[in-house]
């Protein structure tokens, strides 16, 4: 079969367009699979958190022996860190305005708050002093140094795996998050950090600055940091 003149040009155009369409569709399928993966992880974390809370209610102070085995942190540190990396990657590939990403971020923020509350309960009950940082950032263009602060916190989180970093998008439309912001009276001067229930500190803080504010971080067990696939702690 031969194609002459414009037919050959048209056929080539059709095939090329089909290849392009397939590429767009396959990329879309991969992104959907990622979103499903994140959602499954969030569901699992949610179950684990509820389980931890129930365990706490059942065992009371006996939970302390369980918590102390993890330097005073609840058990979900690794899962939340993994989820943070996945969400950052998803935001990079799908965009921060993507409705699915926003929904996943809301769910993630809720899990963080639940984990944070559980952490506080455990530390009060057991007299432990875990170190945690509440980090408020913005993607709305009103925080020029949020990217740098995210890098700093990623580095600290990877260097000190037991350091808890809770990252919140300040402008996320989530009532629980708004309550948290009101409780700590955090002004929209971002980035904002709350380190171990201290008063909020505003503006970019380097690794040294944070270690000066919370010298206890340097005493935490360390690991050799490597650049994660997503080098930005904005979740």
């Amino acid at each position: 079969m031969t194609f002459s003149g414009w037919r050959r040009y048209t056929l080539a155009l059709f095939i090329t367009a089909a290849i392009f369409g397939t590429a767009f569709y396959v990329a879309y399928l991969f992104n959907e699979a990622r979103v499903a993966d994140i959602r499954a992880t969030e569901d699992q974390i949610s179950i684990d958190l509820q389980s931890s809370e129930t365990q706490y209610e059942l065992l009371g102070s006996l939970t302390c022996s369980y918590a102390s085995s993890n330097e005073g942190n609840p058990v979900l540190s690794d899962e939340l860190n993994t989820l943070a990396n996945q969400l950052t990657y998803a935001e990079d590939t799908l965009g921060s305005e993507n409705s699915q990403v926003i929904q996943l971020k809301e769910q993630y923020s809720l899990l963080e708050i639940q984990d944070y509350l559980l952490l506080e309960k455990l530390s009060m009950q057991c007299g432990t002093h875990p170190i945690y940082i509440l980090y408020f950032y913005s993607n709305a263009g009103d925080c020029s140094s949020c990217g740098e602060e995210g890098d700093v916190l990623t580095y600290l989180r990877e260097t000190y795996p037991t350091l808890r970093v809770y990252s919140f998008d300040y402008h996320l439309d989530l009532s629980a998050l708004k309550t948290l912001i009101e409780l700590h009276t955090i002004a929209p001067t971002l980035p904002a950090l709350i380190i171990n229930s201290r008063l909020p500190v505003y503006g970019f803080k380097s690794v040294d600055d944070i270690l000066k504010i919370a010298p206890g971080i340097a005493k935490l067990s360390t690991t050799t940091p490597t650049s994660s696939p997503t080098a930005n702690t904005e979740f």
Binding site: Y89, V152, Y155, S206, T226, S227
Partner: peptide
């Protein structure tokens, strides 16, 4: 940011 240079890490997880 005063963050030491880090060795790039490539994940084998399909997600990335």
């Amino acid at each position: 940011e005063k963050i030491p240079m880090q060795v790039p890490h490539f994940s084998l997880d399909w997600f990335y």
